[in-house]
Every structure is written in C-alpha cells, then in structure tokens.
Design a protein around this nucleic acid. Structure first.
Lengths: 137, 137, 137, 137
DNA sequence: GTGGTCTAGACCACT
DNA sequence: GTGGTCTAGACCACT
C-alpha cells in the first residue's frame, strides 16, 4: 500500500479551480486517512514533494502550513513534518465530509438541470466504472 | 413565465473556488437544460442579473460571453441574449458530464482515503437526504 | 438592374464589427456608384429600408445623416432623401478606395503570417470563385 | 530571439472597428503562423504587452483569454502563456481564412458598385504596391 | 515576476 | 432600455 502510493500518478489537476496548495494538503490528508502515513511518521519533505509533483517548493510549504494549523501534522525543527496523534481519525472524518460534499454538489447540479433520480443514480454508477478503469491502469 | 425563476435563491457561493462568472454561466445552462429558458427566449439582462446577484455587471457580462462562445446563447444588439436553437440538448449533455465528474471526484477522494465501497455508497445516499432536506425548505 | 437590387438578400452582417448604420450607408453608396440610384432620384424611405433590412428606423436614420453630411444625398423636407448632383462619381471613388483598403488589409495580414505572394494571389482567385458562386444563387 | 519582434511597430489601429483585444489576438496568431513564436515558447507577458501597446492590461488579458480558449496558447500559472502544440498549423489556416474573407469583402463591395473585374484586379495590384511601400519604410 | 478574477465606472451601438 | 469595449485599480495563486 505504501509503495503503491509513491508510484501513483501526479494527482495535481492543473485545470481545477482548487488551488494547488489545497490539492496537495488534501492529498496528504487522504494518505493519513488511508494509513499510508501513520502517527509519528514523517511525511515527505517539501523538496521531495515539490520534485514529485513538479511544483514550486513554496506551494508545498503553503500546503504544509495549512496541515500544521489544522493539527494534522506537527513541525519538528530540523527533522520535518510528523503526522499528529489521532490524525487518522480526523482525516477520515474530513474525507467523508469531502466525499459527501462532492456528491451533494453533483446531485444539486443535476436536479437544477431536471435530471431524474434514475438518471442521476445511473451517472453515479458510471462514475464508479470510470474510476475503476482508470484505477487499474 | 415570471414566477419560477424569481423565486429561486441566489445561487452564488462566495467561498467556492469556482469563479463567480462560471457559477452564473452554469446556472443559466441548468435553466436551459431544465427548460426554464427555452430556445428563442430572452434570458435575464446583464444589468438585471447583476442587481439580483449583487454582483458587478462586468462579471455577468463575462458569464454571458462564455455562454455565447459555446453556443448556448446568441446576443442580439439592443434586445438581449436569446437561448440558441438546440441549446437544451447540449445543456443537458453538459449537466450530465458535470454530474459524473463531480461523482468521480468524490469517489476518487474517498478511495484515496481507503473508504470502503459500502461506506461511499452510504455517503451518496446521505448526500441525497441532505439535498432533499435543503431543497424543500 | 434596379429590380435586382431590391430583391438582393439583406446585406447586413450581424457578426461584423462595422456598425450597422455604416453598413447601410455603404450599401447606398454602392447603389449610387452603380447607377441604381441616380442624381435627383429619391432613395428608399427610412421606414421602407428599416423594414427591408429588419432594422430599427433610428439606425437607418443615422446612416442617412452620414450620407447627407458627406454630400451623397440631400434631404428634401416632406419628400425624402435625393441623390445629390455628381454623387455617382464620388461614390465610385469611395468604392475604389474601400476596395483597395480591404485588399491591403488582407495582404498585410497574410504577409504578417508569412504567407507567400503565390499563396496570397491564389487566395485572391479563390475569393473570386466564392463571390461568383454566391452571387449566382 | 529578441530582435525580430521588438522592432515591429505597434500594430493597434485606434480607428478600426475591430476591438483592440481582437487586434492583439490576431497579431499573436500571425506571429505564431509566421513561426516568430514557436510551440512551447512563451509569448510576451500581459503586463509587458500592455506597456508596449500603451493599453490596459485587462485588454491584453482578454486577447490572451481568447487565444487560450481557441487552443493557440496554454496558460501556465506563475510562468506565462505558452504557444500550444501544433498551433502554427491552425494559425496558418486562420490567416488564410482571414485573408480570403478580406478579399471577398473587397470584391463584393466593388461588384455592388459595378466596378469591372479589370478595375478590381487593378486595385488588387495597387494594394500590393501600397503594402510593399509601407512595408519597406 | 506570472496569469486570473472582480469591482467601479465610462462611452458606444442599437431598440 | 439592451449588450460590447475599455480603463483603472485591487487582491489572489503560483514561480
């Protein structure tokens, strides 16, 4: 599982309106929620992450500041950023909220366009198919 | 003619990262897809929309420019913006794509956090409940 | 020739950046240059022209004001607008200048894109073909 | 790299009915078609171009937005606007279409004024002379 | 430094 | 009244 994560394709979506630093923070939260990064462990350094994501170190630093302020990670001078105690549980909660929010956003837009519940459920199933196809690549 | 739309709440989310002008464009697309605005009909004027949304007219203008360039709407000088022929079908297609994209986004994030399919499906159902509760208020 | 002109398709290009009133003025100048409207004759009334071109009478009025100011037509109270003395010759000159300007515009743009003289001359010949095909419809 | 472009005269025609932002977009397309700006290279920044043309940065921004939406150029945050892959070919196509359109416009106006083909061809040759004289200054 | 979004306000063409 | 263009200037994300 840990190995899989490092090999994963760069998760930054250039076209998204979500700032890159927030995408990075979200990425770390997911890894904490998934148990890829465990309490007390170091997360990848700013420099390493910047290289992997082909992004400016300042952008990664800003993401890490967000994570530190919200209590997901703790800075240890001269060492790096450590995953905080009980961070996994709160990261899971965060992930669930984010997921539900994304679903609500989709449903609300679909209802505004007067798509039927049946059609929307169908689109949800299709989203699963697409996700799995891309996931196996 | 007058009722349906004037009662709708102002749909602008200030905190969203999605630019206001794109939120407005999306809102018009939904109304076209839903048949609220029909081919040949005028959509609300730039100034009227700006007043309703408490937004600068330039911002609405930009949304309408996007809609015109993508062919949803046609500008008629001195008259207003008309819904284009066959705009409803393409707006429906747009809505379906946007919906599936939102669902994929949610699923992908959930899988990254190692939430189970069962849990994710449950969150989808909850999103429906939340949507309906807010929708009926 | 006179009949042909009245039956000609509406020459207003909605997508052009040239204001409609100037397109109308240009249209009258061409008719004067072509001898369709002769010195001393009345040109079509504002109302008739507005109906033919499906345009607001104010717009036609503005075009006619331009033509009067430049001396192509003369207003006769209660009667209408008459083609001025020697208007044909100056209208011809105007048409020639406008034609050369259009050609220069095309050539300049083509040279900026580094199209060869050979290619540009070819495009000129194609423009003739296209014009004739559409003219015979 | 530096020379060719900085020496070019400011190409904005204040009196033209074509909006300044479209003139700027057209100018960039020509440079791409001509190979002055190549795929992957940065085009001049919004601010630099605004200063050079003595125009508001928003106007240049709008031109660049048009170029991005049509796929001529790709925005890279914090870096600048890059010429897209295969942009040269489409820019050439665009230039040829614009050239033929300008010629058709000239021919159509001339025919409406009943100028002879002989005279029109003569005006085309004169347009070449004028262009070359001004080009060599 | 780079591009992206938004506001405020002016002036134009057309109905 | 309608939409279209432009200026001036602010603030944001990213390099």
């Amino acid at each position: 599982m840990a190995g899989a994560h490092e090999e994963s394709p760069i998760p930054i979506d250039e076209r998204s309106h979500v700032p890159v630093f927030e995408q990075i923070a979200e990425h770390v939260r997911s890894a904490v929620a998934a148990g890829v990064y465990r309490s007390g462990e170091l997360i990848p350094s700013i420099r390493a992450t910047a290289l992997e994501l082909r992004v400016n170190p300042n952008t990664v630093q800003r993401a890490y500041e967000v994570l530190e302020r919200e209590g997901t990670v703790v800075a240890r001078k001269g060492i790096g950023m450590c995953v905080a105690e009980r961070a996994r549980q709160s990261a899971r909660g965060h992930a669930e909220t984010a997921t539900r929010t994304a679903f609500e956003h989709g449903i609300r837009g679909a209802l505004a366009a007067e798509l039927s519940k049946r059609r929307i459920d169908d689109l949800y199933e299709r989203a699963w198919s697409d996700t799995q196809n891309q996931g196996h690549v």
